[in-house]
Write a protein that binds this DNA or RNA. Structure first.
Lengths: 342, 342
DNA sequence: TTGTAAGCGTTATCAC
DNA sequence: GTGATAACGCTTACAA
């Protein structure tokens, strides 16, 4: 075993092999556990690798094996408070399995999303977690194993929260609190989450409380003026919002109008973003199993990597109601000036 | 020019060259603009590449050139509301220059940070944006061009916001509003941002208002009980917080204690995270030039890539006061029961 | 169990 | 201007 502690460049597998007095093949077998190697040689190789600070060369390996050791994540907008926690969960899970994560934030722009997907493909990510922009029609599916989060898309593996159940949870809550007139402040119409939450809500409410009206608004705290106006004069006592962000906007609009929450009107959200517990009153909402969502996505990719032919899988993760202070019992009729004057 | 529209595998440069009737070298020159090529051949190559849907192979190129075309971002915790916007800015800028971004979220864990940096190195990122964990001592500097955000670190390029100026801005604000007793609710002592903000604050206040007391708390909305207690009984009329997150915690504690903000006591934050305008009262704070911060970081890396020998550069970006509703004029003395009874 | 050698798809060096 | 050709560092038949 020769003794060359420092060579100018990054140590290569050949260097390790030479230092250990074995062939590159044996060094490779040893370091990857690819083939059985005698204890004697294994130790020599390990020592040499250690001493030379051998780190391997992903690009070379990728070229040879066709796998890059990286996964990709393409999402609409990190500024949407729901995604950072999800991205964190995905990255953590990926890293746990030795994968690096490439991130593309498309800033809610369709063109950026398309280019981002292509960038991922160019870099040869082994798999992709894709949270598509809402309403994205016929984007070509990436070539690598892809799991789509939060959107049902034929052919790909998917992970979603059980939005229907979430809607039902909220409906049950409204009924339990004795509300008889509810206003639905949905997210964008084309978002599939909107459709599923709506369905759960409607089914749950059916025949037991009246849906005073349904509005579709974007996922922003800035409520469209029309929606804000409706919200302020409605005689509904319970407002079910398509997301926490919307709910926070609703809270603001109601406060601005001097309507008291939850005394006069209850407001509930969906998502349980970090803000939800910080606004006043703290928002009652439905929480996703965020880290499970992320973990499931990565796991699905890894499974598909193992078995590319398997049938597409759809995982639906449970949600849970988080009661806080933004909802309460339906108020007595007298407390509604609008009702009284009409 | 032969006509082979579909070959089973991904088209390679040789395929393009063959289809165009040129050598691989010429194809490479053409596609990269590396050497002058006759118009005739250039067109043939471009057409062939187009028709075959040639995409290139980053791993092969990386192996050959030693550049991966990816930058890395290592940050403490995406769940900290300051980072998503920054990450977004960095990713956008990187992609604008054709780079993919690899993300490591170390979940505030030192070990994960170390491993994350190594993962980046293994994947051969061309440059690294590193937002170190607070108080990280002697982590070995990565080998690739690195710009450190928000921490001064000898030898590396750095990008920071002008925290000193920010502190001064807040001090000026307090004085302008007539406050005479201020409480400083700093971030963690070891965070260098804490030190800089404190300095700006102290210098700005010097001799014109009394610093009633200084507390160091973590960057969380959960104020340590001791700090909350102090906050509630203090006779300071102005509380300068080390970050918005801390300020929000302070707001909660004050509300819980029934102290009115800003009537009795003013609270200001630092960072201008998205929450700041959503809490009640909306938080007066100091805003970073977040997207400039991200852009500057990427630009610095790119410049260093161009000129590895240049002296390390430190960029300091301006901050600006964002007045909202959580602060106001110093109350009359009578409004402080504690003063009256003592 | 170990070694030899042939690539993986590019780019760079050299001749022409 | 253009074309052979040799790497880049690794994995993996295949041979021994």
């Amino acid at each position: 075993v020769s003794d060359l502690p420092a060579l100018g460049r990054r140590a290569t597998l050949r260097d390790v092999a030479a230092a250990a007095g074995v062939s590159p093949a044996t060094a490779s077998y040893t370091l990857n556990g690819t083939k059985p190697v005698s204890d004697e040689l294994r130790r020599r190789v390990q020592v040499a690798a250690e001493r030379l600070g051998y780190r391997g060369h992903r690009a070379a390996r990728a070229l040879r094996t066709g796998r890059s050791g990286a996964l990709g994540l393409v999402l609409p907008d990190l500024t949407n408070p729901f995604y950072p926690a999800l991205a964190q969960a995905i990255e953590a899970r990926a890293r746990r399995f030795g994968y690096a994560l490439m991130l593309v934030d498309c800033g809610s722009a369709r063109a950026a999303e398309r280019r981002g997907l292509r960038l991922m493909a160019d870099h040869g990510v082994d798999g992709l977690v894709w949270i598509p922009l809402p309403g994205g029609g016929d984007v070509e599916r990436p070539a690598c194993p892809t799991v789509v989060i939060d959107r049902s898309r034929t052919g790909a593996d998917t992970v979603v929260s059980d939005d229907v159940a979430g809607g039902a949870l909220i409906a049950a809550r409204a009924l339990e609190l004795g509300h008889e007139r509810v206003l639905l402040l949905h997210g964008p119409r084309r978002a599939t989450a909107t459709r599923r939450r709506r369905q759960g809500l409607l089914d749950g409410l059916l025949g037991r409380a009246a849906v005073v009206s349904e509005l579709y608004v974007p996922f922003t705290t800035a409520l469209p003026p029309a929606a804000a106006a409706t919200l302020v004069v409605t005689d509904a006592t319970f407002v079910a919002c398509g997301s926490d962000v919307i709910a926070i906007g609703a809270l603001e609009a109601l406060r601005a109008a001097g309507r008291r929450v939850p005394a006069e009107v209850s407001v509930v959200g969906f998502d349980d973003i970090a803000w939800a517990r910080l606004v006043t009153p703290a928002l009652t909402t439905v929480a996703h199993a965020v880290s499970d969502l992320g973990a499931a996505a990565v796991d699905l990719i890894l499974e598909r990597l193992r078995d590319p032919q398997a049938a597409p899988r759809d995982r639906v993760l449970p949600v849970v109601l988080v009661p806080r202070s933004s909802d309460g019992p339906a108020p007595e009729k007298e407390s509604h000036p609008w009702k009284a004057t009409s």
